[in-house]
Design a protein around this nucleic acid. Structure first.
Length: 812
RNA sequence: GCCGGCAUGGUGAAAUGGCAUACACGGCAGACUCAAAAUCUGCUGUCCGCAAGGACGUGUGGGUUCAAGUCCCACUGCCGGCACCA
């Protein structure tokens, strides 16, 4: 038997789908809301590097699912587009002078070609590309909505700076003190930046995670990243000054143990608190801290450093005078930038107090300890950071931590010296980049009107042509040098103004692309609300886990803002999320050029066909887990498809399949149906393999069985599916055919194997009618000679009988 | 250190608390063939045994249960994330 001619079949059907727009989606009102599905892939950055077999994994999965849904009568929105602003094209432009738009468009063509040979059922009529001005016009428009809502602000605080990418980075883009993209050590730099106030949505970004059908790991990562912590804000009066230091603490119950305070080197009170004697030392320390990178301030510098200001603060609970220190272990960006230090109950304060010989007073004792009963103790030998019972705390002695926290917070509040407070680890989003290839931020700086947005009628504010793409590295983008572009008139007063020269980060375009797919050519609005109501929210979103906090957090933030503006219908954009696992190389290592273990999908398609590659990638194991590629392994999937092809050459008969085979058919439909709907594609394929192997034993195929098998296989191997469907005499795409139905009555076996156990160990089995009663099963089991041997001379203490399954004799 | 996940044959893996290893790769044997490829059939967890059969077996150690890969407790290893966040 010759190999089935996939190299002819596959292009033929791709052309057929393309010409007939088989997968075009429209807002057809005849589909009820519950018969509509929006299935989305994370869109790619069209890199010039080309794909490896792991890249299309998620695309194949969603494609199978969409084809399955269509056959089950759903109206499916399944679009694809390109995240096309980004540094690689810009860096290539710097090297070669080629305009990034040109490189990007070429890469998109290449990318589309490479994925289109896989037979993916996208509605390409909805394709979008974030770097095209008819798209980014609306990215700019949304930015203006954020600006007008007060959610965008300028700042000059020190930021994360990547010296290699020559741009500022958001917190989320820094990993282990390195730039997430290029792994260069991040430094601190003070330049003017645009920041988005994502922290204003921290509580909702956290709370709304609960209702999402997302992997626990991703939800946990976002919860961690948002990092909500509850405590108290406490005010410490500065001795001899009309000033107070505000601190945030999660342990107000340890206030009696606060023996000193620490403010960050950037704290606004640094100058005022420094006494003349300490001024020189303070200035030197602050200067040194400013030069340290975040990495030096954290990972590398576990040894505590600091300097005394010379000033003292008054502890509100006991009036004690405590010294105020400056140290870079306190971060200006968290809480109030100042802490009360309780060395006995905080590891960091403990290390600092030891280093500078500051007093340590224990105020919490382990529950049940002698100290807890006594309410007092001597100098502690180690730091105790857990909860317990208050000691050395005046009237509060004996109070458990939780009660103490609540009580002291109320006590402080009554005296106007504190209140309940919630803090988030999440920082505002550093949103501007000092680079060329991004959306220009549509703002004009006017000397008399301030910063004003570009009027909607003037959007898109397009990128000007430049002669050099090179970033200046000084914190100005290449746009700053284009005078005719920078110099403009103020949209409010008409006077001279200057354009904002920062551009947006790559995340901007991906924050709302899923909305534009619904209405990709709308020139009047970013999306028509009626279309949003038709499709949103996204029912299934599939993509890589690397976006767990970055893209997924940013997009959720923008979506909530759009919701608040009444522009979208849901508080969350992506109801269900699945992270496809990584495809490793044959050596079980991450697939990468440098390791030389990259497998190219073009080669696989040429040798085995796209259908075989699709089926194999889904057959390998669960979608979510990482697994190594095996070119030898694809043979099994290839053989399965070849068997289907060979079976299609057999004559068809109109008789019903024989009893056992009919049951197998219906059980297979039930299995494949269930597993496909839950994306358990590997076990669905396995079930089809079993059915095809059984049916292949016949010389002539029952038409009903064959038709069902072809339709079940079609979402998985769509080209072969169409070919076999037409070979069956059909004249319309199998994607328009109904998914086969199963008869539950035919899924039940008349006779089942019942196993017999002695003390839980399997000793024998027998066949019995499926509905045989307990008495009958026990009688049959007891009658077996082998079982009689085991029971002989033993006392049967108990018999467990599960009808249709087993008989277990418990003996001794 | 904290948070999340994973651990089953030579390999990818399957298994509503009820026959561990379905399906596939690889391997072995056979059929077909002058021969090979392709295809088809059978066998393939480990150990003992000529066999019948038996013992052991899902990272480790405990536990719950008539029965545990599955539930509970403690641990080990690997992967991912966070990490001076008060």
């Amino acid at each position: 038997m010759a190999k089935y001619p996939f190299s002819e079949i596959e292009p033929k059907w791709q052309k057929y789908w393309d010409e007939r727009k088989t997968f075009k989606a429209s807002e057809d009102p005849s589909f009820s809301k519950d018969k509509r599905r929006y299935v989305l892939d994370m869109f790619p950055y069209p890199s010039g590097a080309g794909l490896h077999v792991g890249h299309p994994l998620g695309y194949i999965a969603t494609d199978i699912y969409c084809r399955y849904l269509r056959m089950n009568g759903y109206n499916v929105l399944h679009p694809m587009g390109f995240d096309s602003f980004g540094l690689p094209a810009e860096n290539y432009a710097i090297q070669t002078g080629t305009h990034p738009a040109k490189t990007t468009r070429e890469n998109i063509v290449r990318f589309k070609k490479q994925i289109s040979i896989l037979g993916l059922s996208y509605d390409w009529g909805r394709e979008i590309s974030t770097c095209e001005s008819d798209y980014y016009k609306w990215t700019q428009w949304i930015f203006i909505q954020l600006f007008n809502k007060g959610l965008a602000y300028e700042s000059e605080a020190p930021i994360n700076w990547c010296p290699s990418c020559k741009t500022g980075l958001a917190n989320e883009e820094v990993k282990d003190g390195e730039c997430d993209r290029c792994h260069t050590k991040v430094t601190r730099k003070r330049i003017r930046q645009w920041i988005l106030k994502i922290t204003a949505y921290a509580d909702r970004l956290l709370a709304d995670l609960d209702g999402l059908d997302w992997p626990e790991a991703v939800k946990a990562m976002q919860r961690n990243w948002i990092g909500r912590s509850e405590g108290a804000q406490v005010s410490f009066r500065v001795d001899g000054m009309d000033e107070a230091i505000e601190v945030f603490t999660t342990r107000p119950d340890t206030l009696f143990g606060a023996t000193y305070m620490v403010i960050a080197p950037e704290h606004p009170l640094v100058k005022k608190l420094s006494t003349s004697g300490q001024k020189e030392a303070v200035d030197a320390y602050v200067d040194k801290a400013a030069k340290k990178s975040d990495l030096e301030r954290t990972d590398l510098a576990k040894d505590k450093t600091g300097v005394f200001t010379g000033s003292y603060a008054i502890n509100p609970v006991n009036g004690a005078k405590v010294p105020v220190w400056i140290s870079d272990y306190v971060l200006i960006s968290y809480g109030t930038g100042a802490i009360m230090a309780v060395p006995a109950h905080d590891e960091r304060d403990w290390a600092f107090a030891k280093a500078f010989k500051l007093p340590i007073i224990q105020v919490v004792a382990r529950e049940g300890s002698p100290e807890a009963r006594l309410g007092a103790c001597g100098d502690p030998e180690e730091c105790f950071a857990e909860e317990g019972i208050a000691v050395n705390s005046g009237n509060w002695n004996g109070t458990p931590t939780a009660d103490f926290k609540a009580g002291i917070t109320k006590w402080l509040e009554e005296r106007g010296q504190g209140k309940l407070a919630v803090n988030y680890k999440l920082r505002d989003w550093l949103f501007s980049r000092q680079r060329y290839w991004g959306e220009p931020i549509p703002l004009v700086h006017c000397p008399s009107c301030g910063t004003v947005p570009v009027p909607e009628a003037d959007l898109p504010l397009t990128l000007p042509e430049v002669t050099s793409y090179e970033p200046s590295g000084t914190g100005e983008s290449p746009l700053a040098k284009i005078e005719h572009w920078v110099n403009t008139s103020c949209p409010v007063c008409g006077g001279p103004g200057k354009r904002e020269t920062n551009t947006m980060p790559q995340w901007a375009g991906s924050c709302w692309y899923y909305l534009r797919y619904m209405d990709p050519t709308n020139a009047k609005a970013f999306v028509d609300r009626a279309k949003v109501d038709y499709w949103m929210p996204v029912d299934l979103y599939v993509g890589g886990a690397e976006h767990a906090v970055l893209h997924l957090l940013y997009a959720r933030f923008w979506h909530k803002v759009l919701f608040d503006l009444g522009l979208v219908n849901s508080v969350e954009p992506f109801q269900r999320l699945i992270n496809q696992g990584m495809m490793l190389g044959e050596d079980s290592q991450k697939m990468s050029k440098s390791r030389g273990n990259v497998v190219n999908p073009d080669d696989i398609v040429r040798e085995f066909g796209a259908d075989a590659m699709r089926v194999y990638e889904m057959f390998m194991g669960p979608l979510e887990v990482s697994k190594p590629w095996s070119t030898a392994g694809i043979l099994g999937s290839s053989r399965f498809l070849e068997r289907l092809w060979a079976m299609s050459e057999k004559p068809l008969v109109d008789d019903e399949p024989s009893g056992e085979l009919l049951k197998l058919l219906h059980k297979t439909i039930r299995k494949v149906d269930g597993d496909t709907s839950t994306l358990n594609f590997n076990t669905a394929i396995s079930a089809m393999m079993v059915l095809s192997a059984e049916a292949n034993k016949l010389d002539a195929l029952p038409r009903e069985l064959w038709s069902a098998l072809v339709r079940m296989a079609a979402p998985y191997a769509p080209h072969l599916g169409e070919e076999l469907w037409f070979k069956l005499g059909n004249t319309e795409s199998v994607s328009k055919a109904p998914w086969p139905a199963f008869d539950p009555a035919l899924c039940i076996d008349d006779e089942v194997t019942v196993v017999v156990q002695i003390n839980g160990k399997l000793r024998a089995d027998f066949r019995a009618a499926k509905d045989a009663g307990k008495e009958e099963l026990e009688r049959t089991a007891r009658a077996m000679p082998k079982i009689q041997d085991y029971l002989n001379g033993k006392v049967v203490a108990k018999i467990i009988i599960v009808p249709g399954k087993l008989v277990n004799f418990v003996v001794h």
